[in-house]
Write a protein that binds this DNA or RNA. Structure first.
Length: 720
DNA sequence: ATAAAGTGACTTTTT
DNA sequence: GTCACTTTAT
């Protein structure tokens, strides 16, 4: 098979570029992944590169997986030996390998955000600061930003009170991490950079090994990641990076799209290739996207084009409130589906904040339609899952105090605050991590520390220590699922969870799901399982088996595409988000987020807003999003208000919507035959007045029972 | 050691 | 309004 077949000239130019620095600026839907995978295959097939000397870096596990499978099929057979993975996973691998040169050992655990926050709390407490006056989350954010910028505590300006606190907390926090033999996400990058900077032999070895570097989503790299690439790259590197500054939406996580510029400065000889042909969207959708992004000053203009034709106009709809907005979505999807214009799974609903999914979920539930929800409550964030992970982490790394604290009295075994306090005090005195002390106490009277504890506490600590010692021992001898079952049985975890409530049963289900995940790691062992758990997000577990609409935030939509896209909440303050108003850079990012959202759509784009919206308990009138004004009206069908002044638009909405027609008497009775434009004919089962409206339950001949709001459902009476 | 009651925060979250 | 977390009472 010819690798270059089916590539357009620009794509081909990128794929076949001679080794050296290459910057591919890839517009949305322009075949970015295609170029990346073909380039990798081209290196192996035509330039004689050995897979082992290639490193390909992505941001998500999903992207890494997709690349692996696509390159595999291009080269005919599984590809082995390529270092392909996320920045964090690749760094974790390097750090475990080189742990002997570093101040932690190869069994280090990776702390997630809640672990980090626990540690910051501890650090603040040690500094005698009240966590109510200094928010741990804020401090953690500042520490994380510093780490992303490769700044040491000493480099932080202690100019302000907060800055000074951050500096001290950062220092303390780093020390605590090492005491726990733990690294946070940022550390994975930071320590790798440090290692490569300071150990020239190690750096030389990695540079020798990796002749070819490929990077996906380059606009999302932060300073640490950019520096890492610089350190891995040879003086004359083959460094192939792909990105789109217009899709940079993670500035608040440290990403800096200016790295694209920096790349051009650092490698003036770099080839720059623009991919502008779009294979995803209709021209109308692309025109809208360009109109939105072109309002952004100081960027390279791209002109996106397609040979797909102009397509359908964009739909704009102003709903009354968020419930109405959600109903509009559900009704429209039902209509499209019934008309055979789209499958439910073709549709996606995107919003700015997770909180907005609630109204949608309710509307889908009311309509009796299934949906897929991305994000929200993370599986690995659930209490019971975290508990089990904490047990496993403690087995791998008894130095992990955060996990120890979590499981010490879960399920309750009589080790309350007092016992914890004594334990940590004695451990401190003996200069042992508390987990090691507990292991020592397992020896009973032979432990030199046995005398420090009395009565029930002593007994309980000893038996917990014995259990832990047995698990640590079993780690070498047992397969992971067996170890998992052993822990569950030893601590009586099922009995602890199963309190007879539905919630308890659900929690146990989650434990079994985690056990299922562990089953896949039967051969590889505890370390890689824990790493997987730490470095994998819920987005990766999104199954596409269910043919149902997808609900997700605009952020998690990046990289995806759907035939039908709804963007909700186009109200000033919601999107763009209120918090971004005072910051021009943040507003620019909101705009890019809108651009990302629009360009997810292949065929149909629905822009929706609500005139009235309740937030934080109170309901208020909203203004249309300022972004709507940027879309040329001739691209839009529907009651568009964009180009008129806000005041006029507001006036019109008020006369149109207020006072809202109030249903005082029921128009429908059980037994009446009605017709709905989307659901067809049906019989009214029940009708009642609720919330100034009439709620009608109808048994439709084709789609079964539905509950609808009479004011919005556009029902026609057929008889009676 | 659990349960009730109070308090505040509340954007996005690839790893 | 709701969720998570803390304080306070039993």
């Amino acid at each position: 098979m010819d690798l270059l077949e089916g590539l357009n000239p620009q794509q081909r130019q990128a794929v076949t570029a001679p080794p050296g620095p290459v910057l591919v600026l890839a517009g949305p839907g322009s075949g970015k992944t295609r170029v990346l995978t073909h380039r990798l295959a081209y290196l192996v097939r035509h330039l004689g590169a050995s897979p082992a000397e290639i490193m390909a870096v992505t941001f998500t596990n999903k992207a890494a997986r997709e690349m692996t499978s696509r390159v595999g099929s291009l080269l005919g057979g599984a590809l082995s030996g390529v270092s392909l993975g996320t920045f964090h996973a690749l760094c974790a691998r390097i750090l475990r390998r080189e742990a002997s040169l570093l101040p932690f050992n190869r069994d280090f655990v990776i702390f997630d955000e809640s672990d980090q926050e626990a540690l910051v709390r501890q650090a603040l407490k040690a500094l005698n600061l009240d966590p109510k006056q200094v928010q741990p989350g804020k401090v953690l954010g500042a520490i994380s930003s510093a780490k992303n910028e490769l700044l040491e505590p000493s480099a932080l300006t202690g100019g302000s009170y907060f800055g000074e606190i951050t500096r001290r907390a950062y220092e303390r926090y780093q020390r605590l991490l090492l005491e726990n033999n733990a690294l946070d996400f940022d550390d994975l990058l930071l320590w790798t950079v440090r290692l490569l900077r300071e150990q020239s032999e190690v750096r030389a070895a990695y540079q020798r090994r990796y002749a070819h570097l490929l990077v996906d989503e380059f606009q999302d790299t932060n300073t640490a990641q950019y520096e890492l690439l610089r350190l891995l790259a040879r003086p004359e590197p083959d460094l192939f990076v792909v990105g789109d500054p217009d899709q940079s939406i993670y500035r608040w996580r440290g990403a800096d799209y200016r790295n694209v510029q920096r790349f051009e400065e650092d490698y003036p000889e770099a080839r720059v290739i623009l991919l502008e042909q779009n294979y995803r969207s209709t021209q109308i959708i692309l025109d809208a996207a360009m109109a939105v992004i072109d309002r952004q000053s100081g960027r390279h203009r791209k002109s996106l084009f397609t040979d797909r034709g102009s397509g359908l106009l964009i739909t704009y709809h102003e709903a009354y409130d968020e419930a109405d907005e959600a109903r509009y979505v559900v009704d429209t999807i039902a209509g499209l589906t019934l008309a055979g214009e789209a499958e439910p799974g073709d549709c996606t609903v995107m919003y700015r904040t997770n909180a907005q999914s609630r109204a949608l979920e309710e509307a889908f539930f009311q309509a009796g339609l299934p949906y897929r929800l991305v994000g929200a409550q993370r599986f690995y964030g659930r209490r019971e899952v975290k508990d089990l992970i904490a047990y496993l982490r403690l087995i791998q790394n008894p130095d992990d105090q955060v996990s120890l604290l979590r499981v010490l009295n879960t399920p309750p075994r009589g080790l309350g605050d007092k016992a914890v306090e004594t334990l940590f005090f004695v451990a401190e005195r003996a200069s042992l991590p508390p987990g090691r002390l507990i292991l020592d106490l397992a020896q009973g009277d032979r432990s030199e520390h046995a005398g420090a504890f009395a009565g029930r506490t002593a007994a309980s600590l000893r038996s917990f220590g014995q259990a832990l010692a047995a698990w640590v021992d079993a780690r070498e001898k047992m397969l992971l699922p067996q170890l998992f079952d052993r822990v569950l049985a030893d601590v009586g975890y099922q009995a602890y969870l199963d309190d007879g409530t539905e919630e308890g049963a659900e929690r146990w289900e989650n434990v079994l799901e985690l056990r299922n995940a562990a089953l896949e790691f039967t051969g590889v062992g505890l370390t890689s399982f824990l790493e997987q758990v730490a470095l994998v997000s819920d987005q990766d577990t999104l199954t596409d088996s269910l043919n149902a609409p997808t609900l997700l935030t605009l952020h998690s939509a990046k990289g995806l595409e759907f035939p039908v896209v709804f963007i909700l909440g186009l109200d000033d303050g919601v999107f763009p988000h209120q918090r971004s108003f005072p910051d021009a850079e943040a507003m620019a990012e909101e705009r890019r987020l809108f651009y990302v959202g629009i360009t997810r759509a292949k065929d149909r784009l629905h822009l929706v807003r609500a005139f009235r919206r309740s937030q934080f308990g109170t309901s208020g009138v909203t203004e249309p999003s300022r972004f709507l004004e940027d879309i040329p009206p001739d691209l839009i069908a529907g009651d568009f208000v964009g180009r008129r002044t806000r005041a006029e638009a507001t006036y019109e909405r008020q006369t149109r919507w207020e006072p809202r027609p109030t249903a005082r008497t029921a128009r429908y009775r059980a037994g009446m035959r009605v017709r709905h434009p989307a659901f067809g004919e049906g019989i009214v089962l029940e009708s009642r007045l609720a919330n100034d409206d009439e709620e009608v339950t109808i048994e439709f001949e084709d789609v079964g029972a539905k509950r609808l709001a009479a004011s919005l459902a556009r029902l026609t009476l057929l008889d009676g």
